[in-house]
Nucleic acid binder design. Structure first.
Length: 950
RNA sequence: AGGACUAUAGCUCAGUUGGUUAGAGCGCUACCUUGACAUGGUAGAGGUCUCCAGUUCGAGUCUGGAUAGUCCUACCA
C-alpha cells in the first residue's frame, strides 16, 4: 500500500468491475428493497444537491444489499419539457434559427441528439459518485414503455372523468407561448403604481357626494379594455345608491353595470373595483357570480387584439360589443398601458397615480410576467385523487421523515386545485386526443384505437392535439411506469410499493404529491386496496453555499461535485462559473467572489471523502451550508483509515492471525475494542433505520479515529513488539486487529465504497474472508454476548491513568520522550489487579521508567498528582517538576472540584429535589458528591505538602 | 394575511423520551518528525445555549411571549 491515500489511484477501477459483474442488479434473494431515483433533468448536469441525495440513496442501497435484501436502485432521467426545449432553442438561436424554421419533427430530432450527449455526461457523473444503480434498468420518461404508460393513464383518467378539457383562465407565459401550472409561477414583490381612473356614471347618476363619476384603482391600466363590470362592497354606504346603475367605460364607450360583491374591500383604494373577468383570477370569479361575459383582449404575445373576443363561462362565443378603440391593436401590454394612461390623462380622467408595491407573477423558467389568459386546456381533477393520499399519510401508510413535512403536505393537499396538464410545447408526450373537422375530439390510445372505438371511417379526417403534457405528468408515474406498468410484470409485483423516496422539500408538491395521487389511483393490491408508491419519504435538507446562499448559475456559486473529487485550479473554476452567463456583466463580480472563496482552487478530495462529508451534513434541518473545510477534514479521515490499514497490514502480513484457528489469548485491549464494536454496530443499525446519516457518520468517525486508531492500535504495539509475549497473545492481538478492521470496512462501505473495497481486498485473506468484493459481504450486526462491561471499565481506568500522566507531562512541560517513574498511592485491590494486568500497556503508552505501588503507611515523595477515582497517581518532583507550577496546577484543579461539589451539594440539600427526584438520580448525585469531596481532600492534602516543602 | 422552520464555541453544525462537567469538524495556543499516518501526535484555550416569563426538584431540551433571520402558501384591485 502507498504511504499516503491517493483516491484517484483507487477509485474508478472498482466501479467498472462492480458494474461488469452485475453486482448492482437485484440478487433475487430475500425481501425486496427498492429506491426510485428522482430522475434528473436529462439536459442538465449533476449539482451538489444531486450528489448529496444520491450519496444517501446509495448508502441506503448498499446497506440494505449487504443486509441481505433483494435490492433495486432504479436509475433514469426526466425529459424536463420546458427546460430542455429552452436549452435547445437557445442553442439554435446562436445560429439565428428558431424552432419554427426547423419544424416540429426536425426540432424534436435535435432535442434527442442533445439528450444523448447530455444524458451521457450525467450517467458518467453518477458512476464517478459510485452510485450502485442497476444500469440495465435505466429509464427515460420519453422511452416507449413510459410513453405507453403516459397514454394509458391519460385515457383511463379521461374515462373516469378525472381529466377534462375546458376554456378557462390559465397562467399564460407570453414568452414561451404556453400555459403553466400554478406551481410554476413565482410571485415576487415589485415596485409599481396604483392608477386611479375616473369612470363617468351613465344616465345622469350621481354619487352620494354629488359627483358624476366614480374612481377605480388599478395596477394594470391596460386591462380596462376588457372591463365588463364595476364592483363595490354591498355594505359600502358611499355607493349603495349606485348598485344596478351603469358607468360608461372611457376610451371604449362600453357600458358596465355596477354590482355589489363581498370580494371588494371597503378599506382599499376607493372601494370601487373594475372587473376584468378574462384577465384576472379574482375578477373571473366575480364575473361568474354576476353573469358577466368573459372578454379577452390579448393575443398569445399579450399584445392587444384588434377586436376583443367574448365568451360565456362554458367557453362558448357569445354576442357582445367587442369593439376596441383604435390605435391599440398589436400593442404590447406594457405599451398599451402607457397609452391608456396618457389617453385618460388627456381626457381629464386620470385622478391620481400612487406608488404601490405589488406581487408580480413571473414564469419560473422564462421570468416573463405571467398573463391570466383564456385558452382551451386539459385539466386533471385533483380533489378525488388527493383524498386517498391524505388518508395514507394520516394513517401512516406513508411516513414523511422528518415528520413535520406532513403538515406541508396536508396544507397543500387539502386545498388542492385542478391541475392544468397541457403545455403548448413540442418536446414532451403529445396528448392522445384527436379532433375531427367538426370540432369534436376523441381520446384514445392511438388514432386507430379512436377510430375503432368511435366508428370513424377513413373518410373522417383526424388530427392529434398538438399540445404535450406537463413533464410532471410523466414523472408522477415514475414508481410504476419504470417497473413495466401497464403490464402486470414480475418486477412490479416484487418491488412495488417501493421502500423510500429520497428527495428535497422543493418538489413535494410538484412531484411527491402527484406521484402519490397517480400511484394510488392506478396500482391496487389483489383485494383492490390502493398501493402507496413508497412507504417513507425522506426529505433531505437543501444544499447551499458556505454563506447560506442557494447555489445558482447566476450567482456564480455553483460547485460541481466532480471538481471536489478531482480538484480544479482557480482559473478553471472562474472560467467554468462565468461561461455562458445570461448576464455578462455579472462576470467580474463572480470572478472576484470565486477567487476570494477559492484562492487556490480546490484540492482533489476523492469520492469517498465527498460522500462522507455529504453524509455527515445530512441532519434534520431545512438546509445545510456546504463548507469545503469540512471536506478537507474528512479527506484526512480517509488518510487516517488508509494508514491504520497499512499499520495492520504491516503487522499481520505473513504472520499467524488466527485465520486457521489456533488458541488465542485476548488482552484487555482486544476485549475492549470488540465490545465497543458491538455498540457501534447497534448504533449504526438504528441510525440507518431513522435516517440519521449525520449521527451515523459521526459514530463511525469517532470510533475509527478516537477508539480504534488512537487507543487500540497503540495498545497493540506493546504486545506485537514484546519478544516475550506468548504466541496465543500475539495471535489474539493480530486476529483482533485485522478482524476489527475488516468489520469497520464493511460498516463504512455504504458511505465510502472505494477506499473500503481497496483495503478490504488486500486484507480479506488475513481476516479469513472470501469473496470478490466487499459490497456483497454481509453487513455487520451487533452480538450482545461480546459486550464486556468489565473490559470497558478496565480500559477506562487504563486510559484514565495514561491521560493523567500525559496531563502532568503537558502542563509541567516535561519532554514527551522522557521516561518517568510513577508511584500509585491509596489504591484499592481492584486498582492493584488492573495495574498487574496492564503494566506493560501503562509503561509503553505513558512512557514510564518504573511503577511503584505504595502500601498504606509507605512514605510518598513530593510529587505531582492525578486522581483516577480514589487512586493517586504520583510523578515525583525531583529534578522534573517546578513546585510553583504544580501548586498552580493543583489550585486550579481544586477550584474546579470545589465548584462542582458546591453545585452538587446544593442539589442534595434541596428538600424538594431529595423528596421528588427519582432514586437513581439522587443516588448518582450522592456518589458524585462523595467522589468530589474526596478529590478535594486529596488535592488539598497534596497542596499542603508542597507548601511545606516550598 | 396565514403557516412552518431556525437561533448552541471565532466559523459550519450535532445534542434522541427534561437528569454526570453541553459535544464534533475546521480555526486558535504550546510542545513534538517516536518504527501506520505532519492529510499526524500530545496537552490546552474558547460557550450567561438570542432575550423575557412560566411549568418542574431540575430546562439547551417542554409551554407562552418578544427579537432577528429563512422559507412556504394565499393575496387588495
Amino acid at each position: 500500500m502507498e504511504k499516503t491515500y491517493q483516491p484517484q489511484a483507487i477509485e474508478g477501477k472498482h466501479y467498472q468491475r462492480w458494474e461488469e459483474n452485475n453486482y448492482f442488479q437485484p440478487s433475487g434473494q430475500g425481501d425486496s428493497y427498492c429506491i426510485m431515483i428522482p430522475p434528473p433533468n436529462v439536459t442538465g448536469s449533476l449539482h451538489m444537491g444531486h450528489a448529496f441525495q444520491q450519496t444517501l440513496m446509495d448508502a441506503l442501497t448498499r446497506y440494505h444489499r449487504m443486509a441481505g435484501r433483494n435490492t433495486l436502485w432504479q436509475p433514469g432521467s426526466d425529459h424536463a419539457g420546458i427546460a430542455t426545449q429552452m436549452v435547445v432553442e437557445r442553442q439554435l438561436a446562436r445560429d439565428g434559427i428558431s424552432r419554427h424554421d426547423l419544424g416540429r419533427e426536425t426540432f424534436i430530432d435535435r432535442v434527442w441528439q442533445w439528450k444523448e450527449e447530455s444524458g451521457n455526461s450525467i450517467t458518467g457523473q453518477m458512476r464517478r459518485l459510485g452510485d450502485s444503480v442497476d444500469w440495465s434498468r435505466e429509464r427515460f420518461t420519453m422511452d416507449e414503455g413510459l410513453s405507453n404508460a403516459v397514454r394509458e393513464v391519460f385515457v383511463r383518467l379521461y374515462e373516469d372523468d378525472l381529466i377534462y378539457r375546458g376554456k378557462r383562465l390559465v397562467n399564460w407565459d407570453p414568452k414561451f407561448h404556453t400555459a403553466i401550472s400554478d406551481l410554476e409561477v413565482e410571485s415576487k414583490e415589485e415596485q409599481g403604481s396604483l392608477w386611479h381612473f375616473r369612470y363617468p356614471l351613465a344616465d345622469g347618476a350621481k354619487t352620494a357626494e354629488g359627483k358624476d363619476y366614480i374612481v377605480v384603482a388599478t395596477t394594470r391600466p391596460e386591462t380596462m379594455l376588457g372591463d365588463t363590470l364595476v364592483a363595490v362592497n354591498p355594505e359600502d354606504e358611499r355607493y349603495t345608491n349606485l348598485v344596478g346603475k351603469e358607468v360608461e367605460l372611457p376610451l371604449v364607450g362600453r357600458r358596465l353595470k355596477i354590482v355589489a360583491d363581498d370580494y371588494v374591500d371597503l378599506e382599499f383604494g376607493t372601494g370601487c373595483v373594475k372587473i376584468t373577468p378574462a384577465h384576472d383570477f379574482n375578477d373571473y370569479e366575480v364575473g361568474k357570480r354576476h353573469g358577466s361575459v368573459l372578454l379577452n383582449i390579448f393575443d398569445q404575445d399579450a399584445a392587444v387584439l384588434a377586436e376583443a373576443e367574448a365568451y360565456d363561462y362554458q367557453g362558448k362565443p357569445v354576442d357582445y360589443d367587442t369593439a376596441l378603440p383604435a390605435g391599440f391593436a398589436g400593442l404590447d401590454r406594457f405599451e398599451a398601458r402607457k397609452k391608456i394612461v396618457a389617453d385618460f390623462d388627456a381626457a381629464g380622467l386620470l385622478d391620481s397615480i400612487k406608488d404601490h408595491t405589488l406581487m408580480v407573477p413571473r414564469g419560473d423558467r422564462s421570468d416573463a410576467v405571467i398573463e391570466p389568459w383564456l385558452t382551451d386546456q386539459w385539466y386533471v381533477s385533483a380533489k378525488p385523487l388527493a383524498e386517498p393520499t391524505i388518508k395514507a399519510v394520516e394513517n401512516g401508510d406513508i411516513q414523511f421523515v422528518p415528520k413535520q413535512w406532513e403538515n406541508t403536505f396536508f396544507a397543500w393537499m387539502r386545498d388542492i386545485q385542478d391541475w392544468c396538464i397541457s403545455r403548448q410545447l413540442w418536446w414532451g408526450h403529445q396528448i392522445p386526443a384527436w379532433y375531427d373537422n367538426e370540432g369534436s375530439f376523441y381520446v384514445g390510445r392511438s388514432e386507430a384505437d379512436v377510430r375503432e372505438k368511435h366508428n370513424l371511417g377513413s373518410d373522417v379526417a383526424l388530427t392529434q392535439d398538438e399540445d404535450v403534457l406537463d413533464t410532471w405528468f410523466s414523472s408522477a408515474l415514475w414508481t410504476f411506469s419504470t417497473l413495466g406498468w401497464p403490464d402486470d410484470t414480475e418486477m412490479l409485483k416484487t418491488f412495488h410499493p417501493t421502500d423510500v423516496l429520497v428527495t428535497g422539500f422543493d418538489i413535494i408538491f410538484f412531484w411527491v404529491a402527484r406521484m402519490m395521487m397517480m400511484t394510488m389511483h392506478f396500482i391496487k393490491d389483489d383485494d383492490g386496496k390502493p398501493q402507496v408508491p413508497f412507504k417513507q419519504v425522506y426529505i433531505t435538507p437543501l444544499i447551499r453555499d458556505e454563506n447560506g446562499q442557494k447555489m445558482s448559475k447566476s450567482k456564480g456559486n455553483v460547485i460541481d461535485p466532480i471538481d471536489l473529487i478531482d480538484g480544479i485550479s482557480a482559473d478553471d473554476l472562474v472560467a467554468k462559473r462565468t461561461y455562458g452567463l445570461m448576464q455578462p456583466k455579472l462576470e467580474q463580480k463572480i470572478e472576484k467572489a470565486t477567487r476570494k472563496a477559492f484562492p487556490d482552487g480546490m484540492e482533489p478530495s476523492g469520492t469517498d471523502a465527498l460522500r462522507f462529508t455529504l453524509t455527515a451534513m445530512a441532519s434534520q434541518g431545512r438546509d445545510v451550508n456546504f463548507d469545503v473545510k469540512r471536506l478537507e477534514g474528512y479527506r484526512n479521515f480517509c488518510n487516517k483509515i488508509w494508514n491504520a490499514a497499512r499499520y495492520v497490514q504491516m503487522n499481520t502480513e505473513g504472520e499467524d492471525c488466527g485465520q486457521n484457528g489456533g488458541d488465542v489469548e485476548l488482552t484487555l485491549a482486544d476485549r475492549w475494542i470488540i465490545s465497543g464494536l458491538q455498540r457501534l454496530e447497534a448504533d449504526l443499525e438504528r441510525y440507518y433505520s431513522n435516517y440519521r446519516f449525520d449521527l451515523m457518520s459521526q459514530a463511525l468517525y469517532e470510533f475509527i479515529w478516537n477508539e480504534y486508531c488512537d487507543w487500540y492500535l497503540e495498545l497493540s504495539k506493546p504486545v506485537l513488539w514484546d519478544d516475550n509475549a506468548s504466541a496465543e497473545r500475539k495471535r489474539g492481538t493480530r486476529r483482533t486487529l485485522v478482524r476489527v478492521l475488516e468489520t469497520l470496512l464493511r460498516l463504512a462501505h455504504p458511505v465510502m465504497p472505494f477506499i473500503t473495497e481497496e483495503i478490504w481486498l488486500s486484507i480479506k485473506d488475513l481476516a479469513g474472508k472470501t469473496g470478490d468484493t466487499i459490497m456483497l459481504q454481509p453487513y455487520p450486526r451487533a452480538d450482545e454476548t461480546k459486550i464486556d462491561a468489565t473490559a470497558e471499565a478496565d480500559a477506562e481506568w487504563l486510559k484514565g491513568v495514561i491521560v493523567g500522566i500525559r496531563n502532568i507531562r503537558g502542563e509541567m512541560n516535561i519532554a514527551p520522550g522522557k521516561e518517568l517513574p510513577v508511584l500509585f498511592q491509596n489504591g484499592s485491590s481492584e486498582d492493584q489487579r488492573r495495574l498487574q494486568e496492564n503494566e506493560t500497556f501503562l509503561k509503553t503508552l505513558a512512557k514510564l521508567e518504573s511503577i511503584t505501588w505504595l502500601n498504606e503507611g509507605d512514605d510518598a515523595p513530593p510529587a505531582s498528582t492525578q486522581l483516577v477515582g480514589q487512586l493517586k497517581v504520583l510523578v515525583p518532583l525531583a529534578g522534573l517538576i517546578d513546585v510553583a507550577a504544580e501548586q498552580a496546577r493543583l489550585s486550579k484543579a481544586i477550584d474546579k472540584a470545589k465548584q462542582d461539589l458546591a453545585r452538587v451539594e446544593g442539589k442534595l440539600s434541596n428538600e424538594s429535589f431529595v423528596s421528588k427526584a427519582p432514586e437513581a438520580v439522587i443516588a448518582k448525585e450522592r456518589e458524585k458528591a462523595e467522589a468530589l469531596a474526596a478529590s478535594v481532600r486529596e488535592l488539598e492534602g497534596q497542596l499542603t505538602q508542597l507548601d511545606e516543602l516550598g
